[in-house]
Simulated scan of single mutants.
Amino acid sequence: MHANGDETARGDRVRLIDVATNCGVTKSVVSRVLNNDPTINVRPATRQRILETAAELGYRPHAGARALAGAEARALALLIPDLTNPVYSRIIRGAYREARRHGYVVLLAEDTTDDQAGEVFTELVETGRVDGLLIASARPAHPLIGSPRLAHIPHVFVNREVAGSGRNVGMDLASASATAVRHLHQLGHRVIGMVSGPMDLEPARARRTGFVHQMRELGLNPHLIEDGPFNELGGAEASTRLLRAHPDVTAVYASTLSQAVGAMHAVRRAGLQMPADLSIIAYDDLPLADYLDPPLTTIGMPLNELGAAAVNAILDQLAGHAPSDCIVATQPVVIERASTAQPPNCR
């Protein structure tokens, strides 16, 4: 009745179909029996035969398959705003490794402007396909946040803050901006501008707040700010406006690395050199920063730790603990490269 030992000798993974073939039933029946589906109607002898065969063959459900199977999915869904944004790869990696350490997998979903996206996402949990949601989308008025179904589902907000939710897992974004300003100030810069993100996004507001507060603390003008989308074009256009309105600016803080790439393009188009005429520093650190011209000074953030903290927060909820806000303790650090230097008047 049972499979021969050749497959096992070769070390091949025993599949669901192998158990089904040996028992003379379908894959669906085996899956539902092994997942203790209470709605399946099979004879006790058949159920026992399936359980014994699975044990004898050494069948272990593949984690990805279990995530799609239903009962006890041992999978988490991570909603991110943009799959093309390299910053999220670090958060994803931290989440994936921590989840794997606990026997879970992480499924990715990209945010869309579809108003039904929130309902679809909650259904992943309600149908048993995932055990909890990690929501990293910063889109304002996201339909998922307003869904009454969300309150009954284990979830956390990652790298964004939903006021009063008690489920926010984040980093000290304001501190990152303050760190950037202090670095430029220590180099001698006194006229510092900022390329900010859209003000309808909470992370952009937090970074801008940190910049403004630190500039005021140092007695500097905190209002040299232009907003733009979190991408290269947004950085280029905001930097162009900033340099035209304030030609005396000697340093620029960009609130994403992508914006900084656009800012560097705008600086060159303005006929300026970096860092001889203008220094640039960016929030976020990625390997790309080493290969720009000049290599870009950045603020290193604990993105891997953030992903891991989000997983641990959701696992705590699954273990029956009440949700709570969490700020990753690791502080931002300056990764100094060649794009920042003393301003011309200090040399």
Rank of each mutant, 00 (worst) to 15 (best):
G307R: 08
R241S: 02
N159K: 09
I280A: 10
T250Q: 05
Q331C: 00
A260I: 12
A117F: 04
S255E: 03
G210V: 01
Q214F: 04
R90I: 01
M274T: 15
A174F: 01
S339Q: 14
G11L: 14
Y59V: 14
N168M: 10
L303P: 00
S196C: 11
V333W: 04
L220V: 11
P344A: 10
P81W: 01
A151W: 10
Y88S: 03
T84Q: 06
L292F: 07
F230D: 12
V328W: 14
Y104I: 09
C346W: 11
R74C: 04
A141L: 14
L257T: 08
V334Y: 04
R60G: 07
L303V: 06
V267L: 13
T39E: 14
G197K: 10
R241L: 06
R347I: 10
A176L: 05
L133H: 01
I91S: 13
R97V: 02
R32L: 09
A310P: 15
V191Y: 07
L76W: 12
A55P: 07
A99T: 09
R90F: 13
A65E: 03
P203W: 08
R241N: 02
E336Y: 03
F211T: 06
A69H: 05
V19Y: 05
V106T: 12
L83P: 09
H155F: 09
H185S: 11
A276M: 06
I225N: 03
Y96T: 15
V156P: 00
S196M: 03
L257F: 08
P38W: 02
V105L: 02
I192M: 05
A9K: 13
E52G: 05
F157M: 06
G188C: 11
V14L: 00
Y96S: 14
E336S: 11
Y291M: 13
D172E: 13
A308F: 01
G128C: 10
A63C: 03
R182H: 02
P44T: 15
R32W: 05
A176T: 08
Q317H: 00
R182P: 00
A251N: 08
I314G: 00
A329Q: 11
L292T: 06
G146V: 05
H183M: 08
M264R: 10
R149F: 09
L79F: 07
H246S: 02
A73G: 09
D290K: 14
C23A: 12
L296R: 09
G146R: 05
I17K: 11
A308Q: 06
Y291D: 13
L224C: 05
G271Y: 07
A54S: 13
G128P: 04
C346F: 13
D115S: 08
V14G: 02
A263D: 01
V162H: 03
D115C: 00
T127V: 04
P203Y: 14
Q214D: 13
L150Y: 10
S31F: 07
G262H: 04
N22Y: 01
T84S: 12
E336G: 00
N221F: 07
M215Y: 08
